[in-house]
Write a protein that binds this DNA or RNA. Structure first.
Lengths: 155, 155
DNA sequence: CACCATTCAGGATATTTTCCTATATTGCAG
DNA sequence: CTGCAATATAGGAAAATATCCTGAATGGTG
């Protein structure tokens, strides 16, 4: 079900992306409305799937996950069965935070968050032993310049 | 202030990452405790910065942001002033969801979420007109295989 | 075993969510 | 422009929840 979002909806989403812990009254004040319409709009956007999840963002360093790798993968395999097993392997591994199938030269990109280079190597060895890939390049993040889950909304 | 996380803390974090809308009683039930210790532990982890933010994850497609690009950037510039301006430019642009400085051959990687290829080109032109970069490769995501903000926690 | 510090469960109160109702607003046909 | 129907709104009542307090339980230590 597609939902047409108006300016108030978008303001609410901006507030929720900024801080989902706010009370309805606070959000209502920030968007210039009252709690009932805000509540109805949030419920509607939840039901429509515009809002997918409320969650908490953790500090990777505080959890000892100090190494972030972007992994570029080329493969010569393109059969359905191989792909199914590859996707399953990625979905099953919690250190894989993102995985995209790409257009062009490089077939897949992964974002992998692990404790250190050794942990990455363990992950890498396990992955390539499970599914054959042609060429893998790992890019190691030295510094997170920016990291947000807030999608841009035309206010 | 570093916090030592025990098994209960990690269970709480797993629950909060899964669904931060749960009531304290629910979380307490799920981790086998009662609401007071859960509440105290959450507050402590918030204060310590382990929990950085409570937020809402939105569906990019529902907002008309149907194109996700990973952008690989090489530059010959490595002066402090250039870098400062480059970081500022990235932080100021809301379509840049992630930006990392990398080790090795490629200097930076960005994750950019936009409406379509045209919008990406607009972003790209604006960026290179603002700061000089040597070489830019854009990888277009065809399919999101996995996308999570949940960091792996040894339960 | 006794002491201290820490963590716990359960309860009291303040706050918030959830839903209802009556009013206001908007879009639209005549 | 006017009146009607559909929709959105503000405010309030009841239920649920967060927040904080108290006293009991626990675990490590001399």
């Amino acid at each position: 079900m597609a939902v047409r979002l108006d300016a108030t909806d978008r303001k609410i989403l901006v507030e929720l992306q900024r801080d989902a812990d706010q009370s309805l009254d606070e959000i209502a004040r920030n968007v210039g409305s009252s709690k009932t319409p805000v509540w109805n709009r949030i419920r509607k956007m939840r039901d429509a799937g515009v809002i997918r999840q409320t969650t908490v963002l953790l500090d990777p360093d505080a959890l000892g996950l100090e190494a972030c790798f972007f992994v570029l993968i080329r493969t010569s395999e393109h059969e359905a069965e191989w792909q199914r097993r590859f996707l399953e392997a990625l979905r099953a591994r919690p250190e894989v935070l993102e995985a995209h199938r790409l257009a062009g030269d490089i077939d897949y990109i992964l974002k992998v968050q692990v404790a250190n280079a050794r942990a990455y190597d363990t992950f890498y060895q396990a992955l390539i032993s499970e599914v054959r890939v042609h060429n893998v390049t790992a890019l190691l993040s030295m510094e997170v310049i920016k990291s947000t889950t807030s999608l841009p909304l035309k206010a």
